[in-house]
């Protein structure tokens, strides 16, 4: 973990309220799928944790959605501007031999990164992704997604991506599911995975203070082999066994 000053190579619109930012960090930076960085926003009290979309060797790529003032600020930055981030934080996915990767909305970022890494290693994976509507699909990444659904049917299959999980399990017989998206989608997919006895890893999101496990601001409740306890999303996560997470208490995230 350290503090980085990164130069923005490009920061381009990738869909409705969606941006892809390419960062150059001198000497590159080591990262794994599922990990995140925390970006300093001038005059803001908290850094903004963002999931990594990919590692370019000389830096990182991010996929982010404009949701508030912090991401709004980021979206206005230009090539050549600098940002300060801390990282690299969090754990990584533990993929199996046959993987079903699921991204919902901007939650596509870490599973897209995972798919690219698995391709390099020759490990089988299928990537499916769900969006509210056609406008919210990051165009640049479309060709790497094996199945797309939209809530309104404006692109691909119609419906929530959670509805297609069962079909994909039957067709592809994965041994592992890795998912990132809204809590409700991860909850439904975890339940489906449990039904088929498939290992399901979920990437959780929570309001973070320090990003390093010191403040206990981002904790969620997990069932750790029968012991119910707090786990800091920033330090122990963001990736957890879907069977261990109490999604009920996480709606705030």
């Amino acid at each position: 973990m350290k503090e980085f000053k990164a130069k923005i190579k490009y920061n381009k619109k990738a869909g409705k309220d969606l941006y892809i930012m390419d960062l150059e960090t001198p000497g590159g930076v080591f990262s794994k799928p599922g990990q995140f960085i925390s970006i300093l926003i001038p005059d803001k009290t908290l850094r903004r944790p963002l999931s990594i979309l990919g590692n370019t060797g000389d830096g990182l790529q991010l996929l982010y959605k404009v949701r508030g003032e912090g991401t709004k600020y980021l979206s206005n930055l230009k090539s050549g501007d600098f940002i300060n981030f801390t990282g690299i934080f969090g754990n990584t996915f533990a993929p199996g031999e046959k993987n079903l990767l699921i991204g919902a909305g901007v939650g596509l970022a870490p599973v897209y990164y995972l798919k690219k890494e698995l391709e390099k290693k020759g490990v089988t994976s299928k990537l499916i992704a769900g969006f509210k509507t056609k406008d919210e699909i990051p165009e640049d990444l479309i060709t790497d997604i094996d199945l797309i659904s939209t809530d309104d049917g404006s692109f691909g299959e119609k419906g929530s991506i959670a509805e297609f999980t069962e079909r994909c399990i039957k067709e592809n017989t994965p041994d592992t599911i890795c998912i990132c998206g809204p809590v409700i989608v991860m909850k439904l997919v975890s339940e489906t995975a449990a039904k088929y006895n498939i290992n399901c890893q979920v990437s959780m999101e929570s309001m973070m203070g320090c990003s390093i496990g010191a403040c206990r601001g981002c904790v969620i409740k997990i069932n750790d082999n029968g012991i119910i306890r707090n786990a800091a999303v920033c330090k122990e996560g963001t990736i957890f066994d879907g069977n261990k997470v109490f999604f009920g208490g996480c709606e705030h995230a």
Binding site: K44, M207, R216, H252
Partner: peptide, 21 residues
């Protein structure tokens, strides 16, 4: 400590409700 959302950013700071975890 406390259940539910524990921190929120405000204009010039933040609110925490960790509850002494």
């Amino acid at each position: 400590g406390n259940r539910g959302q524990r921190i929120i950013e405000t204009e010039c700071g933040m609110i925490n409700s960790i509850g002494l975890e």
